[in-house]
């Protein structure tokens, strides 16, 4: 199985998409530090890159390469391999290649321009979001047989988590502003991995004031450590549940 994983990983690492993704990350994150006067601002720019750009690219690449690779998956499934082995090699190689792109594209500029705890947190956040979105996308790719519908669903999923969700929260806060809704707002935020990452990163970057209501509330209500731990637990659930569902879809799929 490790031979297959290495083979597929090598194929991903040579793909134009992954190379392009790495270069864009490298360029944008370096520019963030070069064109701002202090690293703190650069890091804040990096947060937006991680929260918006990374999930989009990861979702699209996961979807495209899984649909594109379906014919080869079929060939692999007729070899003397179990479905589980094929599943873990396909999704694992994908995940690893995207992690490698992050490590080079984001890790190197962070190490050069802003070494320290906040940089590590930013890279870790990017890495977790990448894993989560790739998992969610593989679930969609194995469930939706039609390629065009699948890619469209991936895009809608990204839109929902990054823009629509925040819009709805704002609307909720606006409408219910007469009631004590702080705890509810925190809970709703835990339903969205992007918001969770935003909360943790802002806490770590010590810019809670910048993120408005939720971050301040979170600290006030839960205290720093407990808050971060519960967010991490929620992120872990976001990682494991979609991956497991996607594995089951793969095992039961008719290729």
């Amino acid at each position: 199985m490790s031979t297959l994983l290495a083979f597929l990983l090598s194929n991903h690492l040579k793909s134009r998409f992954v190379i392009g993704y790495t270069l864009i990350l490298l360029l944008v994150s370096s520019a963030l530090f070069i064109f701002t006067d202090n690293p703190q601002k650069g890091l804040l720019g990096g947060v937006n890159l991680v929260l918006l750009f990374v999930p989009l690219v990861v979702s699209l690449y996961t979807g495209i390469s899984l649909y594109h690779g379906e014919d080869f998956t079929r060939v692999l499934l007729t070899q003397s391999l179990s479905r589980n082995q094929v599943y873990w090699s396909s999704t694992g190689s994908l995940q690893l290649s995207l992690q490698a792109a992050l490590l080079v594209g984001l890790g190197i500029p962070l190490l050069l321009f802003a070494p320290g705890m906040p940089a590590v947190a930013l890279l870790a956040g990017a890495s977790i979001l990448s894993l989560i979105f790739s998992g969610l996308s593989s679930l969609i790719a194995f469930r939706v047989n039609d390629k065009v519908k699948g890619i469209a669903s991936l895009f809608l999923m990204w839109l929902a988590f990054t823009l629509v969700f925040d819009g709805l929260i704002l609307l909720f806060i606006q409408l219910m502003s007469d009631y004590p809704i702080e705890a509810a707002v925190i809970f709703i935020n835990l339903l969205n991995p992007v918001d969770m990452c935003r909360i943790v990163l802002m806490q770590v970057l010590d810019a809670a004031a910048l993120m408005g209501l939720t971050g301040a509330l979170l600290t006030e209500y839960m205290g720093n450590l407990f808050a971060i731990l519960s967010v991490l637990l929620a992120l872990l659930i976001w990682l494991i549940v979609p991956m497991e569902l996607s594995r089951r879809s793969f095992l039961n799929k008719d290729f």
Partner: peptide, 8 residues
């Protein structure tokens, strides 16, 4: 229809 990993 065979389609194999493009970059290998």
């Amino acid at each position: 229809i065979g389609r194999y990993p493009e970059n290998m």
